[in-house]
Amino acid sequence: MLKAIRRAVDRHRHGQGAYAHLFERYQGDEVIALDCETTGLDPRSAELVSIAAVPVREERALSGSALDIRLRRPAGLSGDSIRIHRLRPMDLSDGLSVEDALVALLDFIGNRPLLGWCIDFDVAVINRHLRPRFGFELPNATIEVSALYQRYLRRTQPDVTPDLRFEAIAKALSVPELERHSAKGDATTTALMYLRLKKLGAVASTN
């Protein structure tokens, strides 16, 4: 409820601004598979390390023309997270500032729907940085791939308790995990899960 009100307010405030197009209803049939690597799992404190956005068009994941951003070393880059995404401080020395990264991201995704595994987390982390700088949050529609999978499973195998972990879904849909824990790799894998579910008839038309 609160979200809806916020969005309405954002739209009202920015409907005439530089980012007005973000608030328009999306008419096409593309989606953006989004994945962020962060310094932690708490959306209130996690800092962005890298962001990848892979467009999905027809039956293809356009990983070749994906957005793949690395950010400048955030304060919270610690040993724990380095072990997961393998980005050391030195790898991030020539990264973008959060500000520039968000501009690039907004330009790239436009008003296309965002697709992800636990997409709410990624959107929440981005929004935390977006609101203080731009005055609004991502207005894009979101598609949760694990929810699509759950719905598909409930229809085809009602007795099975779904395993909604990323690896489990990939395995069940026989999608290869391309580069686990790289933003672009995970985003592409997510895109493939989505394509697979679409073929299986588990995705309603995106319009």
Binding site: R60, S63, L195
Partner: peptide
């Protein structure tokens, strides 16, 4: 490189189509 999924029986490239991609099969 992009990645694409095709269902059984789906036409990936049709005769007379403009060749826009080279395909490498993963699976």
């Amino acid at each position: 490189a992009d990645v694409a999924y095709y269902d059984r029986g789906e036409v990936i490239l049709d005769a007379g189509d403009v060749g826009q991609h080279v395909f490498v099969i993963e699976k």
